[in-house]
Each structure stands twice: as C-alpha cells, then as structure tokens.
Amino acid sequence: MASSLRAGVLHWTVAVPLLAVVLTVLTWGRGLPAAVVVLAGLFLAGAVLAAVHHAEVVAHRVGEPFGSLVLAVAVTVIEVALIVTLMADGGGKSATLARDTVFAAVMITCNGIVGLCLLVGALRRGVAVFNPEGTGAALATVATLATLSLALPTFTTSAPGPRFSTAQLVFASVASLVLYGLFVATQTVRHRDYFLPVTAQGETAGAEEHAGPPSRRAALTSLGLLVPSLVAVVGLAKVESPTIESGVAAAGLPSSVVGVVIALLVLLPESIAAVRAARRDRVQTSLNLGLGSAMASIGLTVPAVAAASVWLKGPLVLGLGPSHLVLLALTVAVGTLTVIPGRATPLQGGVHLAVLAAYLVLAVSP
C-alpha cells in the first residue's frame, strides 16, 4: 500500500505539474538566466503533456461532450486570467492585447486544430466523419460571437477608433455570455447526441473499447491535477514571454508575433488532445475541442475584459483590421462548407491549414 502510494506521488503526471507551478511562482516577473529559461521550457512541455493526460482521464470518466468541455473551459478561464493580468501591467500594447489574443485563439482553433484533426481523421480511413448538426451549431455560435465582438467594433461610430462605447460593450458582453450559456446547455442537456462521435454510417459511436472508464477517485484526482497543470502551462508561457519577445525583436519581426507564439503554447494541451482523438477515429470529439475552445475564448474573454476595463487604465480596442476581417470571413465560409456534408476528405483539412498559414504569414509580414 505504502509503495503504491509513493509510486503515485512520484509519477511524472503528478510531480511535473506541481513542480512546474512552484517554478512559475519562483520565476514570475523576474529576469532569468539562460539555464533557468531552458528549465522552464522543459517544465512547460511536461505540464502540457500532463494536462493532456489528466484531461483524457476526466473525459474518459464523464464521457463526451463533457470531457472536451472541461478542458476547453479550464484552459480558457486561466487564459482570461492571464490576459487581465497582462492588461493590468499597462503599457501601450495592452489596449489591443485582448483582441489579438482572442483572434489568435480563434484562428488556431478553427483552422489549426480543426484542419489538422480533419486531415488526421481523413488520412486514417479515407474520410473524417462527424455530426453536422452539432458541429454546425458550434460554428454558427463561434461566427456570431466573433462578428459581434471583433468585427462590429471596426464599423461602429459612437466611440473613436475600432472600439465599442460603454453601452455597446455591455451588450456584447451580455450577448457573449448568453450565447455561450445556450450552447453549453444545448451541448450537454437537450441535444447531447449531436456532439457524440459517429461512425462512417452516421450512427452514434459506442464507448471506446481499449479500456474501461477510470474510477471516480482517479477521475477526481486527475481533475484536481488538471488545474495546476493548466496554471503551469499558462504561467510558464508568460515566464517565457520575455525571451520570446527578445527573440522576435532580434529577428526584426512585428510585436504581434509574440501573442501568436504564446497562444500556440497555451493551446497545446487542447491541440494534442484533439489530434489524439482524431487518431482514434473520434473526429467529433476533436471538433468539440477546437470549436469549443474558440467559443469559450470569445464568450468568456470579452465579458472579463469588459468588466476589467472599469478599473484598468487606457482604451479597450476590440475591432479587427482589414486583413484580419478577410481571414475571419474566409474562416467562416470555409468552415460552413466543411461542416454541411458531415464528412471531410484530406482536402478540407488542407484548406483549413492553408488559412492558418496565411494568418501566420501575415503576422510575420503584415
């Protein structure tokens, strides 16, 4: 009994997240030597893998779509806390921080995660099969949230620049929360079957056969360890950001590249979990993760930064520029055409990845 307990405590999925949180606390806001930066990078990678492990344990216990919802919401809540913390630090770049981070998350999830998972699923068995009712509802919600929160501020005239007035910001925040709440209720209560994995014949897939569900105690333990794992991922990404900023500046790249790199790091747990699900022929689970993360990123970030803007100094810029508006419109159009048939070939996955590549190229060379 004692030996098994010691083995559990010493298991890397337990030890790495806890040590990573300690390292985050010790290094937060300090200048770091190269050796500590490398150590932080190693613990960041370990925390990502640990988060994926614990999220999969919880998902296996509670089943879909609750499992993907747990990971998406957990990552987004911590990401929102990081955004508000960085905005509180002030500086000229804080006005567009929320917009840049949310849009990066939308592009990475809707084109990167979705495209990669469709490609993996389609290459595995010819076509990637999913439920168009649930996926279409998720895409429609993401498109509406992105348009209301990121596109409309570019065209409103009540406040100078691509900004909302106070009344408009309140409306966008309330609308974001209501739409996200309605989607969660649809996904988990009234139409849960729309978000379950399906077979090639369009039938709901059964439970995974490789192993029985973990015990309640194991699931609760993983749920408890998922939080420090994700805190460590986001915290160490922030710790690494000065080094990333220095590297970006040394390479002569725009400062917006820093936000893209940090968003990629923060979304790594969801990306790995989504690809693993696609490799197990559970593409619907992958799409739940990708689109659910995009939805949570907008639906929770906008109300949070709107509330924080009451006491934070400086303007809150949410409106996208012309090139990003084009990419957003293209993402929605391509996503719609992908979702309608309920199945995708490798071509659709490649198209989504091409849109993400265009976004990354414009981030490096606006």
Rank of each mutant, 00 (worst) to 15 (best):
V9I: 13
V14F: 09
P17Q: 07
L19R: 07
V22L: 15
V25Y: 05
L26W: 12
G29T: 11
P33C: 08
A35G: 10
G41Q: 06
A45R: 04
A47G: 04
A47H: 03
V52A: 03
V52D: 11
V58N: 06
A59M: 04
R61I: 06
L69R: 01
A72P: 07
I78S: 04
A88V: 04
I108D: 00
I108L: 15
T109R: 09
V114K: 02
G121K: 05
G121S: 11
A122C: 11
G126S: 13
V127M: 14
N131A: 12
A138E: 12
L139T: 09
T147F: 15
L148H: 02
L150D: 01
L152M: 12
F155M: 05
F155C: 02
T157A: 14
T157F: 09
S158Y: 01
P162L: 07
S165G: 15
S165I: 10
Q168G: 14
A175P: 11
G181Y: 04
G181T: 03
G181W: 05
A185D: 01
Q187A: 11
R190L: 12
H191A: 07
H191G: 00
D193G: 02
P197Q: 04
P197N: 01
T199P: 06
A200L: 08
A200P: 03
A207K: 13
E209T: 14
H210D: 14
P213D: 06
P213G: 06
V233W: 05
G235S: 11
L236W: 09
S246Q: 15
S246A: 15
S246G: 12
A250G: 10
A251P: 13
A251D: 10
V257H: 05
G259N: 15
G259W: 12
L264S: 10
V266R: 07
V266P: 10
A274D: 13
V275I: 15
A277D: 12
A277M: 10
A278W: 11
R280D: 13
V283E: 08
Q284M: 04
N288K: 10
L289I: 15
L289R: 00
S293W: 00
A296Q: 14
A296V: 12
S297Q: 14
S297A: 13
G299Y: 11
V310W: 15
G314L: 11
G314C: 14
G319R: 09
G321P: 02
H324A: 13
L327A: 09
A329G: 10
L330W: 03
T331V: 13
T336R: 01
L337V: 03
L337K: 08
T338Y: 07
V339W: 01
I340T: 02
A344L: 09
T345N: 00
P346K: 05
G349Y: 04
G350R: 01
V351Q: 07
V351C: 08
V355E: 03
A363L: 08
